[in-house]
Amino acid sequence: MNNTFLIVAVVVVVWAVLFAVMMTMNKKRQVKANEFKNENVNKAIVHLYGNNLKIDGNDISQFNVIIGENLEKVVAVEGGKHSIEGVFETTTLGATGKNISIKTEKLQFEVELQSGNSYVVGIYDYSPEDRERYIKEYGNMGEDILVMPLSLCKESEHASCCLVVSRNK
């Protein structure tokens, strides 16, 4: 009985300490994200889900970049037409219940971004037609400005997917 009580007590204490540490880290991340948003209110804020990212031919590290809540790269750019390139990636649940990483080859596209708005650039594991059906059924939290169909995504069970640039409402 004493050993069981001791083990439970140690687990509870370790959990409480880790919980407090994680809450503190999350609060700091939220404060940093809010500061970033307030400092860049007159710019377009872009959330990018990928690697080897470039905007207008410049490596993303040359911009003021922060890491977002979902580990995306968040950058603020002036409004206007921009060229974005990179390897975009996401994860999906496979038929066996295992997470599958989906990534594209290097993509490059141009998009018009408006100052004062927030954008998300990422890939989805379904076709543009499936995305339209989903939006009709469940609604959309933003406006799609670019939907680029992709086929046979690397390491994917899916025959098609799409890159989407959407403006948040």
Rank of each mutant, 00 (worst) to 15 (best):
H82R: 11
A9K: 15
H158G: 00
V17D: 05
K27S: 11
G79F: 03
I60K: 00
A20R: 15
N2Q: 11
N38L: 06
N140W: 13
A159D: 13
K37S: 06
N26P: 05
A76Y: 01
L18H: 12
K136Y: 10
F19N: 09
Y49I: 03
Q108T: 13
T4L: 02
I45M: 01
C153F: 10
V164I: 15
D59T: 03
H47F: 01
T24Y: 11
E137V: 09
V8W: 08
V111I: 07
N168V: 12
E69P: 04
I84Q: 02
L53Q: 00
D59W: 02
K106C: 07
N42T: 07
T92R: 12
F88R: 02
D56P: 02
K32V: 08
D130G: 12
Y119S: 02
V13W: 10
V65Y: 04
H158W: 04
G79I: 03
D144G: 12
E69W: 08
V164S: 06
K81Q: 12
R131T: 13
L152W: 13
V87K: 09
V13S: 07
G80F: 06
T91C: 01
L152H: 15
W15H: 10
P149W: 15
E105W: 08
N117G: 06
Y138N: 13
F63H: 01
L152E: 15
R133A: 14
M148E: 14
E72P: 01
E78Q: 12
A9F: 13
V65R: 07
G122Y: 04
E155I: 06
I135T: 13
K32S: 08
T90H: 05
A159P: 12
E69F: 07
V75P: 00
D125F: 10
M141G: 14
Y126C: 10
V10T: 11
V14L: 14
V31F: 03
Y138E: 06
T96N: 14
R29D: 08
M23P: 02
K103V: 02
K73A: 06
V8H: 04
N40E: 04
T24A: 07
M25S: 02
L146T: 14
A95P: 09
E129D: 15
G80T: 06
E110H: 05
D59H: 05
Q62L: 11
Y124H: 12
K106E: 14
S166L: 14
M148S: 10
A159K: 15
A95H: 11
E155P: 05
I135Y: 14
F5M: 05
T92E: 05
N52E: 08
K103G: 01
N168K: 15
A33H: 10
Y119N: 02
V11W: 05
C161N: 08
T4P: 00
A95T: 11
F36Y: 04
